[in-house]
Amino acid sequence: MPSTTPKKRTRAGAFWKGAADGAPFLLVVAPFAMLFGVLATEAGLDVLETLMFSAVVFAGAAQFTALQLMQENAPTAIVLASALAVNLRVAMYSASLTPWIGAAPLWQRAIAAYFTVDQSYACSVVQFEKEPQMTVPQRMAYFSGVLSPIVPTWYISTLFGALVGTQVPDTWALDFALPITFLALVAPMLRTPAHVIAAVVAIITSLLTAWVPYSLGLIIAGTLGMMAGAQTELVLERRKANA
């Protein structure tokens, strides 16, 4: 009878497992970053400013949101508020990761906070739940491994997009990368009724509020989606307790 004992990993093994899990995301990270580089230069940023934008923010969705609003000449307060709202999910990612890597040294947690993105979070949570016996150093190694192919690809592709600029033809359709990335990340995470209801409410609300200026409908949709999901969780918990 085969053993059901979880496989023990070294830190190096955890790192390379993370690298293998993060590698498939290059198919969307590269065109996504390249598209940002192209759009940033089209919006008037030079190559250095575009790279600094990516280096300082390092949050694709927030970068695109801010860039779009800047092109629409939105007030600075709206640009900042919208970018922060889009990135609120990262705060939830951090809270979810804390039980797993919260015991790591402060400098490691600081670096992890900067590099907590959709891909590193999604892969890490799935892996940590699958192998809860992993030590904190092994978890940090896995987290770093996921990022090892993604981070340099993001910067290099951003640079390439900024250098190429308007020479990229529309037929390349690089804008497919953003929705595909989020679909690939979100779909496997819809594991409970609360997740599904939150997603459905957010989708419907975003469609109904598409007319709201400065893309603020997305903030409204996200807020209502989270509220609906949280309320569903409470209802289900009450039913479970009564049962």
Rank of each mutant, 00 (worst) to 15 (best):
Y142W: 09
A230M: 11
T158I: 07
W154A: 05
L69W: 08
I204H: 02
G161W: 05
V125G: 00
R9H: 15
A59T: 15
A187R: 10
L208T: 02
L48K: 04
V125P: 01
P193V: 10
T65W: 04
A30S: 09
A55F: 13
L106W: 13
T65P: 02
T76F: 12
A23L: 15
A23N: 03
M226E: 02
L27T: 09
V86P: 04
T205M: 00
A20E: 12
I180M: 13
S120G: 10
S54E: 13
G165D: 08
L51D: 06
P6W: 07
L26S: 08
V86T: 11
L69M: 11
L216P: 00
Q108L: 14
P99A: 12
A61W: 03
L45Y: 15
A62H: 11
Q71I: 01
I197G: 00
L106Q: 10
A30N: 00
V117I: 14
W100C: 03
F64N: 03
M226R: 01
T166D: 14
S206E: 03
K240S: 10
G145Y: 08
G222D: 04
D170I: 08
I203Y: 03
A33Y: 03
A194L: 02
V212C: 00
P2D: 10
L80A: 13
N242I: 09
E129P: 04
E49A: 15
G37M: 12
Q138W: 02
E129S: 14
G102K: 13
V186Q: 01
G217A: 07
T76G: 08
L97N: 05
M52E: 05
A14P: 04
V212K: 00
I111G: 12
A20M: 09
A228F: 06
V47P: 09
Q127T: 07
I180D: 00
V201K: 01
Y114R: 13
Q119G: 07
F128T: 08
L234R: 15
A62K: 08
M34C: 14
G165Q: 10
T166N: 13
M52S: 13
Q133C: 05
W154T: 11
I203P: 00
L185P: 01
L88T: 12
P179A: 03
Q68M: 05
R191S: 09
S206P: 02
N73I: 06
P188W: 07
Q133L: 11
I111M: 14
N242H: 10
A83Y: 10
Q127V: 01
L190E: 07
I150L: 14
A173L: 10
S120L: 03
V79F: 05
L84M: 15
R238W: 11
K240A: 15
L234M: 15
K8I: 12
A61P: 07
L106A: 15
M1L: 04
A104Q: 04
T41S: 06
W100Q: 13
A12C: 05
F53P: 06
I101R: 02
R239H: 06
E129N: 13
K240M: 01
D170F: 00
I219A: 11
M34W: 12
